[in-house]
Design a protein around this nucleic acid. Structure first.
Lengths: 206, 206, 206, 206
DNA sequence: AATGAATGAGTATTCATTCAT
DNA sequence: CATGAATGAATACTCATTCAT
């Protein structure tokens, strides 16, 4: 009973939890995980340190909270790309386009990058980046299969190779974007690179 | 002015400094910058904490000390590649080969990767990795010019693009190598990727 | 005044209180007073933290709740020993036997020992263990009187001495039992010790 | 060189370490281990918290520091008792006397008792009390052997039994001394108890 | 009667850095 | 040149207790 209708207390509790999460993520985003103290988060979220531990296991649990949000960014994209694939659009063009979309998403998410870096330093915590069940990987898989199904791949390339190489280029550009502090057209760059790569990986049929 | 001949005292001082640097780098390498204390370094280098401050400004100064060593790895490669370029070898093949060599070097240098990550988190400290005067960039530049001089590039690609994209792929693979904890043939992967990319970026002339 | 007949509400309240007490004691037993949090107790007793404070003054009040249970262990023994005394059995044999029973009881009650230790550290809270009105002390007193009435005691020994010394030996063995983590036959050991002691404290009459 | 003559720095360092130890032990003594914070110790010893960690591993290491002192109390006794044993004094009388001395020592050392209790709660830390190499155990062993060598023991008793039982009585009285907050003549009590026990454990020869 | 969100002071421990010797 | 004693602020995390609902 009352599963839909929740009391004021319950709603407020959820809000608090959400406020803590938000505050933490923003701080991690701005200053880096290691440079944010629990007290910082408490102050920023307007509650006590102890209360954070009421909702989260510890500091690293707060990082984990990101994962939920990350995937959401790609949720919209998944539907769209799968639909267009089924509609018969050229998989190569779609993958090129997807590189642009992915980079636009990633470059806009400083936070995602922070988590990325964090999980590089503490690989035991953040396997998040590699989850094959993520929306990102699912789209990528579908596109690779689409290409492999409609084109002849050069020797040594198959659909898994395409996915993997796409990811490498994607991440490489993202990395460079952060290193250079932005300042170039990541979307265009990504499309050009994956474009050249795919041209070289596929044998043109007359 | 005694530049060659130095007193025992001076020589010992240099040795101590070097010993500290070495010890610090090894520890950073093994445990990560944040997980190494000055006392650890002091113990590992067989001198006192205070003495480290005699030679270095502080902990982050020790990270800077890496730069010197990093470039050395590429010193040998530079001579070789420049010689082969001048000898008229195909620049495309050489760049492909260079990707292999670079990855073999990088994947063997955990330390280099650590610094890389560290400089991503604290960009104000370590721009070292990006130095255009580095051996790495010099080789790359020469190879790109070689390609641009001997092949027709597709629209939107020029020698700077080739260098930049090479670096992106190089780093992307390196990153993935660390994420996956090794386990794939980075050299072969890199050669295949840059091979496909270059095929797509160059207009084949009959 | 409804002492027998209580409303459902009242009965439930008593049950809850009892449930909390039980849960707390078990946890104190397993983990030690200082390593049990109110939340642990709340969870174990299936109610909220706040509700515990409805029934008990605070954490230390819960320790006090042990007292009630401790004595119960000796209730059965009391009847039995008093009966056998009255039946004319030899008080020395009975006291020897009682040492065995007491140790069997104590060694099986980790909880009792925990409280014991706890009350040593916080003597202001738990004088419980020393209560002269306890079943334990009553049995002991009866046995001592029995011995004093039927044997000649060596100079310096009287019935109070016997009780006191019995307790000291009892506790000494109990202590050692905990220190060594069990592993010896406490019952046999106790009987042997009190046996020797009593032999030495009593002047054999031909 | 200079092993005897130490610099002022070294001497001061040793003094600091000693001052910290002393302060810690007094505080543990007065308030109990769990109720003393590192800051308390720092304040009481007139140095910074950090400096304590320069000399000791952590809080529990400070408890361990007690062991050194404890044994010292028995050092003097050892020589004396061994000498008297060799001189041919009666081992039974000596053991009786030793009970008195031991209790006088123990009852004067609140600290020893605190450690005792502490090691009961955290048995994994403080096996100190049980060390067979301690002066206490060595004296006890010698006395037991002395008795076993010069008297006939009742069935079920041997020299190890005597040692063990002595310790149990010793500790039992000590415990009671603390429980009752002193107030009785522990020395006399101990002698009387061990006296009766030994009388009962030894078969009188005509 | 019962909840559980919120508090906030308290804990042990770490560590880059300084400086008297 | 070299030492290592000393600092003190910072950190993540705990928990008995309160109180609005």
């Amino acid at each position: 009973m009352k599963s839909k209708q929740m009391t004021g207390r319950q709603r407020q509790a959820l809000e608090t939890k959400s406020r803590i999460r938000q505050a933490a993520l923003e701080l991690f985003d701005r200053n880096g995980f290691d440079n944010v103290s629990m007290e910082d988060i408490a102050e920023a979220s307007g509650c006590s340190v102890g209360n954070i531990y009421h909702y989260f296991q510890g500091k690293s649990d707060l990082v984990g909270a990101v994962t939920d949000n990350v995937d959401a960014s790609y949720r919209g994209l998944e539907e769209r790309y799968l639909a267009r694939l089924e509609a018969g659009e050229d998989a190569v063009s779609l993958m090129t386009e997807f590189m642009g979309d992915a980079l636009m998403t990633d470059c806009g998410e400083e936070l995602l990058f922070r988590c990325f870096i964090h999980s590089l330093e503490y690989p035991e915590q953040g396997t998040l980046v590699l989850d094959p069940e993520s929306k990102y990987m699912r789209i990528l898989k579908a596109l690779s299969e689409g290409i492999a199904g409609s084109h002849t791949l050069r020797e040594g390339f198959d659909e898994d190779t395409l996915s993997w190489d796409f990811m490498v280029i994607n991440r490489g550009i993202l990395l460079q974007w952060r290193i250079e502090g932005g300042g170039f057209d990541a979307e265009a760059k990504g499309k050009a690179m994956i474009g050249a790569y795919l041209k070289g990986a596929i044998i043109d049929e007359q």
